[in-house]
Amino acid sequence: MTTLTRRTLIGGVAGAAALGLAGCDRSPGVEVRAGSLTSKHWPGRKVTWRIAQQTEGDADPRPVVVVLHGKGGDASHAFRILNLQDHANAARLTLASVDGGDYYWHARRAGVDTGAMVVEDFLPLVQRETGYAGKVAFLGWSMGGYGSLLLASQLGPGKVFAVVAESAALWTEPGSSAPGAFDDREDFEAHDVFDGSRTGVLAKIPVRLDCGRSDPFVAGNKAFAKVLPSAKLTLDEGGHTADYWKSHGGPQLRWIREQFDRQ
């Protein structure tokens, strides 16, 4: 039996500081550990993270799913509100979430780049913490659904094996985006996941889109599925709510595992 222990990890890359683990929320066979990091991409911020990992069983580390929260959320929401840890063992996956503020997971005029923080600081941390060094998957809702598509389009199929974008915050024109999602038109265009260069990359990665028919982003999700016909689009009952996201967590994680097994 392997038991995960709390520990302090000193050192790291690209501005990572000493990381202390604190907190432990359990689901059968799974422990959720919490810690923090510092990053040059988010100056002056103590960025918290969570990792849900099996407490016994597999000899090899399980594949990692990076979970990106929606606007107004934080690293804890994946577990405290959506209870994704309840499905981690059945799907044979490790889940890793991190704070992203309300910066929509890309570089902003304010001097914050939570997308670069994920790639340059959080992913190496997760590798050290879990021992898993392979391709990762992304799962996110609302702002995090957009962020999952964006980061996967940057990293490509060499580093990402699957993406789930749930109720993704997607707009086809800069003038229709929510206040605060982008700094200006140029920012929108630089990070537009509808752009052909990005959809061309995403076409090489299994992508799943889930959206409720009553969700305000349903039109954007339908439009995105048209420019990325390889994506699996599911439209069902529900809105832009935690209840919708929570009810889809188990099937989504099982789908991610299926994509990993098909590699």
Rank of each mutant, 00 (worst) to 15 (best):
36 S>N: 15
36 S>F: 13
37 L>E: 09
38 T>Y: 02
41 H>E: 10
42 W>S: 10
43 P>C: 07
44 G>C: 04
45 R>S: 05
47 V>E: 08
50 R>D: 11
51 I>A: 08
53 Q>M: 12
53 Q>E: 14
56 E>C: 13
56 E>V: 15
57 G>K: 01
58 D>E: 15
58 D>V: 15
59 A>I: 08
61 P>F: 12
61 P>N: 12
64 V>W: 04
64 V>P: 03
65 V>S: 00
66 V>D: 00
66 V>A: 07
67 V>A: 08
67 V>C: 13
67 V>H: 04
67 V>R: 06
68 L>M: 11
69 H>Q: 06
69 H>L: 01
70 G>S: 01
70 G>R: 03
71 K>G: 12
71 K>A: 14
71 K>F: 11
73 G>V: 12
73 G>L: 11
73 G>Y: 11
74 D>W: 11
74 D>K: 12
75 A>K: 01
76 S>F: 13
76 S>C: 12
76 S>A: 14
76 S>D: 15
76 S>N: 15
77 H>Y: 08
77 H>P: 01
77 H>N: 10
77 H>V: 13
78 A>F: 00
79 F>C: 04
80 R>D: 14
82 L>R: 07
82 L>D: 02
84 L>Y: 06
85 Q>F: 00
86 D>A: 14
86 D>I: 10
87 H>P: 01
88 A>W: 07
88 A>F: 11
89 N>D: 06
89 N>Q: 08
89 N>R: 11
89 N>F: 00
89 N>G: 02
93 L>W: 01
93 L>Y: 03
95 L>G: 04
96 A>R: 14
97 S>P: 07
98 V>G: 07
99 D>R: 11
99 D>N: 14
100 G>C: 13
100 G>L: 11
101 G>S: 13
101 G>W: 15
101 G>P: 14
101 G>C: 13
103 Y>F: 15
104 Y>T: 03
106 H>W: 03
107 A>P: 01
109 R>D: 10
109 R>V: 15
111 G>E: 04
112 V>F: 06
112 V>L: 02
113 D>I: 09
114 T>R: 03
115 G>E: 01
115 G>P: 03
115 G>I: 03
116 A>M: 10
116 A>D: 07
120 E>C: 15
120 E>L: 15
121 D>K: 05
122 F>E: 10
122 F>M: 13
122 F>L: 11
123 L>P: 09
124 P>A: 13
124 P>E: 14
126 V>Q: 08
127 Q>R: 15
129 E>F: 04
130 T>A: 10
130 T>G: 10
131 G>W: 04
132 Y>M: 05
132 Y>L: 09
133 A>D: 14
133 A>W: 10
135 K>N: 07
135 K>D: 09
136 V>F: 05
136 V>N: 05
137 A>D: 00
137 A>S: 01
137 A>M: 00
139 L>P: 02
139 L>C: 07
139 L>H: 02
139 L>Y: 10
140 G>L: 06
140 G>A: 07
140 G>D: 08
140 G>H: 07
140 G>M: 09
140 G>T: 07
142 S>A: 05
143 M>G: 02
143 M>Y: 01
144 G>V: 05
145 G>Y: 08
146 Y>I: 02
147 G>P: 05
148 S>I: 03
148 S>K: 03
149 L>E: 09
150 L>D: 02
151 L>S: 04
152 A>L: 06
152 A>Q: 08
154 Q>D: 01
156 G>E: 10
158 G>I: 03
158 G>F: 02
159 K>Y: 00
160 V>T: 03
